[in-house]
Nucleic acid binder design. Structure first.
Lengths: 338, 338
DNA sequence: GCAACTTTTGGGAACGCTCCCATAATTGGG
DNA sequence: CCCAATTATGGGAGCGTTCCCAAAAGTTGC
């Protein structure tokens, strides 16, 4: 690496002490206006770049937060990151980002990267494989604040940002009932994710409210590996008493299901209506377009970052049970209404 | 932040010098096997975490590379990042990621973040607005290696990773000609992006090869703002002699065009065939599914990172004119063949 | 014209680490 | 059994900052 200009160089050039230079550069008011100008000009002239490692070493602050997400392929997590990064940057914080390919080992490795980088706080959504949370507890021991979003660990007493999955699912299913559906299947997520459970509960509540019997036979929790959807759909459609509607845990699942239904030449929504969850970019574009629940994606990231910064600055308690729930919106398209 | 365990703590506990501890932790071989074990065990027991700021300060190495991408919404750039990050991690490098929302000012700001973080190398794809490259030249002055990918600055003598846009476009257009199309429009990208020019050239070459006259009237360069596509398509379709096919600069453009064509109740591909470029996730799912050119996305990131690491280690020359060109693949779907 | 301030500057320790140089411990050959 | 060679350890400077404390310079009032 090429030679780095230091405050010492500036000091020497101006024949003053490095303390004074440092004072100028840190915005300390106890310095003459004239010398301030001189230092600033010289810094610019020499193309001075502050050495953050030296700074972080003495201040014991890294000015960095971390974000760990399970995947990067759907646009959901990248959009959350944009939201979080925007807020962090405004507060002068750097962000380091890691994605886990939905893999538990990678997640643990990423946590260690975060630890090594001495982040001051962490925003996390876990992989669908994650059942053990010890790697998270290290952060609690070290008193590094954490904020969960989306896929949260409910047992940990840290703030969380979620959308109202229960309510969203409830409205999705109620919508199906309102268009006249009587037998609504549910492709659910793995039950280690609380998000799956909350959506399932919303589904169940809507059925109960409208006195529709719950049939375990048409509620299928699965591991979100899309190649499985075809199997489950074939199963559902070949039942003696097949469902007339499907509520899918998320849009990719719903889209996959739509393909299967189309292949079988069933009419959508007459024979089979479908609702997804998350309003992915693709959902408006496919044919038929997908009715779904949209969530304020970027807002999730912003809220998580705001919360994290408050934790870092001790404006709220580290293990507060704070849960920020953002609202969802039902978007009706052609997979339920022609 | 809570108290941090240092090598001094380990040394004190074991009654040895911090030099010896440091030797163990850096893998220096001049240390007794027995003390090595003791130090390692104690480090684990105390939950020792190396302070990278101190380390970076003395070694003058940040062990970090940067990646700057124009956007995060389509899955293209996130996938490239996965590829690059995987390679970097294998070499023991951290990665810091920044996205620019296709905004030039944000890009410049992100470059400064990279500078402040003393990255050892940078992988970049510029925004569609970027016409001035001074912010990149600072890196050259500081001898920090850069690798471009996808959207490159052709005037800069740094290694680049691209796909064979010319060839891809050529084959896309030749495919349209082979299915019998005679008047092929092109929705092109802004001409400051070399990627647009290369695809345009491939388009022109295919027409020339098959003796199809070039008509400037149906070649429309635009700024990639999707809301404009509708206007251009309406224009094209209302020409006295409208085109019978469209080659779009990328998949989002093609998908948008498909919507307009469908709204007008034209038959696809009979009245109007469409080919895109990039094989986005959505392209296989829409109706009709989109014929497109696929690129080895993750491989692009991997190649860029490999190149960058070689530059950092001085295994290749910094301003070599090295251009790695990866091959593309034509994926035929229903937007051109029923 | 001097004490008592206030404002501005300088000196230097400290942050946690690496790495050079010197010293101590161990080994082995004659 | 001693000296040289080898191996293992310790001491301490230095990386570029920040920040405390003290010193210097400038200001004020009587």
């Amino acid at each position: 690496m090429s030679y780095q200009v230091t405050i010492k160089d500036i000091a020497k050039k101006l024949n003053i002490s490095k303390s004074t230079v440092s004072r100028v550069l840190t915005g300390n008011p106890h310095v003459n206006e004239n010398t301030r100008r001189l230092v600033l000009d010289m810094a610019k002239e020499l193309d001075y770049q502050k050495n953050i490692f030296a700074r972080n070493l003495v201040t014991h602050k890294s000015n960095t937060i971390g974000i760990i997400v399970p995947e990067f392929v759907t646009s959901f997590f990248p959009k959350v990151i944009i939201g979080a990064q925007t807020i962090a940057a405004k507060a002068g914080y750097n962000t380091i980002i890691a994605q886990c390919n939905e893999n538990y080992e990678t997640e643990v490795a990423n946590f260690n990267v975060m630890l090594a980088n001495q982040i001051e706080g962490l925003i996390v959504s876990v992989t669908k494989e994650t059942r053990n949370f010890d790697h998270l507890k290290i952060f609690q021991r070290k008193e590094i604040p954490i904020v969960f979003f989306n896929r949260v660990c409910e047992d940990m007493d840290v703030p969380k940002v979620v959308v109202d999955d229960y309510d969203g699912a409830f409205r999705a299913v109620e919508h199906l009932i309102e268009i006249g559906k009587k037998r609504i299947a549910h492709l659910a997520g793995p039950d280690n994710l609380s998000i799956s459970r909350r959506r399932l509960n919303g589904y169940l509540a809507a059925l109960r409210k409208h006195n529709i019997p719950v049939d375990e036979e048409i509620i299928i929790p699965y591991d979100l590996r899309l190649d499985k959807v075809k199997i489950y759909m074939n199963y559902l459609l070949s039942l003696p008493n097949p469902p007339d509607a499907l509520f899918a845990i998320n849009d990719p699942t719903a889209i996959e299901a739509l393909q299967v239904i189309k292949e079988k030449n069933l009419r959508i929504p007459e024979d089979m209506a479908v609702v997804g969850f998350s309003n992915d970019y693709t959902s408006a574009l496919i044919d038929p377009s997908l009715t779904t629940i949209s969530q304020p994606v970027q807002k999730i990231g912003e809220t998580a970052a705001e919360l994290l910064l408050q934790l870092i600055n001790n404006e709220i308690s580290k293990n507060s049970l704070l849960i920020k729930t953002l609202t969802t919106e039902l978007i009706i398209r052609h997979s339920t209404v022609r």
